[in-house]
Structures are given as structure tokens and as C-alpha cells.
């Protein structure tokens, strides 16, 4: 049975929406084990979501409609990005051409902006601290993302993620080329940072020093909070998709439109995501966090790798 491209596209979105909490829960479980705890149940994020959706929404007195619109806008942004990236298939789907890696980055940034705006709207100092930090550090990591994109553009002459994945699959020489290795490591560092792990953020706790993303959602409650939690799990999975299916291991994707091939691609991808999540949890738990203002050092390293990737390409040896 063959699926229509539109159906596959919908399935990509559905995969991200449905499995994002599972991956988050799995990582939290593994992390608990690493720290000598039993860890929460793997399905815990789903229970949390159900609980939050059942609760009432409280809005701070001075907040306007932006406070409630922010989470919805962010969530819809996270629904758009999976249309642009290779979640399940190794061939481009029709809507895959509406935006490149940069467009995906912009939409993710728009989501971040919406959350930050909703947080600032409350007037709560913690929420403002969180959004101010998130915006500042987002701007600092941006050059590395840009240079990774440039590297991809030079390797494939386009910056559509599907083509980079195809290039990686095409031969061994594409994998060992220094430009690719460096860009992968740089992007890996970016994802580590953006999923709130290394270098300064503690992504689960409410300690002020390490609060960035968690702080932004402090004032939200009920369904809006559920959307934010769900959204941040989806953002994490989206970044994993780009890291895994574009850069590290673009294998195991569906090569045809048949139902079986597409369906089998889902568990393969989730397994890969668990693998990467496990790696992230290990890294997160084996390094101490940096002081907040040392974050520039980390950004400098990611930037250095991305710049070197571009340089060796220009030299003709990448």
C-alpha cells in the first residue's frame, strides 16, 4: 500500500507530537539511574500532560492576551518544523522545499520569542530573568549555527537538510571529510546547549543559577503550561532529528512510499533518539556545569569548530 506524500508528511508531524514526551521521559529515566535514583517512569511526561490539561488556567492580573497566545504560537511553530526535515523518509517530501535549515532555525527562534514574550508579559522577575538569558544565549550560539549552515551549503550547494543527509549516505569519504566531522561536532555542541544540558543550564531543577528555559514557564499553569512542556519536549526531539537524520546517522529512513517502510522508520528513529539522548544524559552527568558567565567559552569552542569546518572547505581539503 502506498501512502500519499501528504499522509507521510502528516505522519512526520504525528511522530514528533506523539513520541516527544516518550523520549523526554526515557532520558529522564536513564538520568535518574545514572544518578543512583530509580528515576521517574518512562511514561511520566504523558501523565503530567494529562494532569496539566485537566487543570484550570490562571492568568496574572496584569497579563494580556499575549500571555495565553505565546504557548499556542510556540506549539504551532514546533508543528511546522517537522515538515521541513527528514523525520521518516530519505527523499524530500513536497513541503520539504518550503524552507531550508535556516528557515527551520528561524521558526524555532520564533517559538522561543513567543515563549519569551509570554514570560515577560507576566512581570515576574524569574520569568523575565529566564527569557532575558534565553534570548542572550540564543544570540551567542547563533554564529555557530550559521557557520554550520554555510558548511552544509558548501558541501551540498544547497542548504536543504535532505541533501546533506543524502551526501552523508553517499560514501565513506563524505563522512571522514574534516568539514563534515567538525560541523557535526559543532552542531552537537549547539544541540547540547539548546536542549538545556551543558554548559550552564540545569534543565530540571529550579535553582536560580542554572535556570533558563524552566524559569520562563514559571507563571504558566493548566493547558498553557502543558503546551509549553509538550513544546519543549518537541523542540528537543526536532533538534535530535536534525542531528541524527541529517548529520550523524541518516540511515534507517524509509526509501519508498510504502506503508511498511514508513512505519518501520518510526521505531528505528525513536531508538536512535534514545541512543543520542542516553549519550547526552551521560555527558550532562559527567561534567560539572560552568559558571553562568563562562558560557561564552563554550560558545567560542562551538564557533571555532564551525569556522574551521568552513575554512578547510575553502582550502579545498574539506
Amino acid at each position: 500500500m502506498k501512502l500519499a506524500p501528504a499522509e507521510i508528511q502528516a505522519l512526520q508531524d504525528l511522530t514528533i507530537v506523539v513520541f516527544a514526551p516518550l523520549v523526554s521521559g526515557g532520558i529522564a529515566h536513564i538520568e535518574g539511574r545514572l544518578q543512583g535514583r530509580r528515576g521517574p517512569r518512562i511514561l511520566q511526561p504523558y501523565y503530567d500532560l494529562v494532569k496539566f490539561f485537566a487543570k484550570e488556567t490562571l492568568v496574572p492580573e496584569d497579563a494580556s492576551w499575549v500571555f495565553l497566545a505565546g504557548p499556542v504560537l510556540a506549539f504551532s511553530c514546533y508543528l511546522i518544523v517537522p515538515l521541513l526535515i527528514p523525520v521518516l523518509t530519505n527523499y524530500p517530501l513536497p513541503l520539504g522545499y518550503i524552507g531550508d535549515i535556516l528557515a527551520g532555525g528561524f521558526i524555532l527562534a520564533l517559538a522561543g520569542f513567543a515563549v519569551a514574550l509570554a514570560a515577560v508579559e507576566t512581570g515576574s522577575p524569574y520569568a523575565q530573568l529566564g527569557s532575558s538569558r534565553a534570548m542572550t544565549f540564543g544570540a551567542l550560539i547563533e554564529p555557530s549555527i550559521l557557520f554550520v549552515t554555510f558548511t552544509v551549503a558548501l558541501i551540498t550547494t544547497t542548504d536543504l537538510p535532505y541533501f546533506e543527509a543524502a551526501a552523508v549516505r553517499s560514501s565513506m569519504s563524505q563522512i571522514v571529510r574534516p568539514a563534515h566531522i567538525l560541523a557535526v561536532i559543532a552542531f552537537f555542541l549547539v544541540v547540547l546547549n539548546d536542549t538545556g544540558r551543558i554548559p550552564v543550564e540545569s534543565h530540571t531543577s529550579t535553582i536560580e543559577f542554572g535556570m533558563i528555559d524552566e524559569a520562563r514557564t514559571l507563571e504558566h499553569s493548566g493547558p498553557a503550561f502543558a503546551l509549553l512542556r509538550w513544546g519543549s519536549a518537541m523542540k528537543q526531539l526536532i533538534l535530535y532529528v536534525i542531528l541524527i537524520n541529517v548529520f550523524i546517522a541518516p540511515w534507517g529512513l524509509a526509501g519508498s512510499r510504502s506503508l511498511g517502510a514508513v512505519l518501520i522508520a518510526i521505531p528505528i528513529f525513536i531508538t536512535k533518539a534514545f541512543g543520542v539522548g542516553f549519550l547526552f544524559a551521560i555527558i550532562d552527568n559527567s561534567f560539572s556545569k560552568l559558571r553562568l558567565f563562562k558560557i561564552t567559552e563554550y560558545m567560542a569552542v562551538a564557533f571555532l569548530l564551525a569556522v574551521l569546518a568552513l575554512l578547510v572547505l575553502f582550502l579545498g581539503g574539506g
Binding site: 558548501l154 558541501i155 551540498t156 550547494t157 560514501s171 565513506m172 569519504s173 563524505q174 571522514v176 571529510r177 574534516p178 568539514a179 566531522i181 567538525l182 574551521l308 578547510v312 572547505l313 575553502f314 579545498g316 581539503g317 574539506g318
Partner: peptide, 21 residues
């Protein structure tokens, strides 16, 4: 672009990678 048409061989690529290290 030069880079896209010219993919380094496995030897060239790995030698460059070591120099980068």
C-alpha cells in the same frame, strides 16, 4: 563551488582531519 564538486578521498580527508586534531 569548488568544494561541492571536489570530494576529498578517504586518505586526504583523514590526513586533513588529523592535521585538524
Amino acid at each position: 563551488m569548488l568544494a561541492s564538486t571536489h570530494v576529498p578521498s578517504v586518505f586526504t580527508g583523514s590526513a586533513d582531519a588529523v592535521a585538524l586534531v
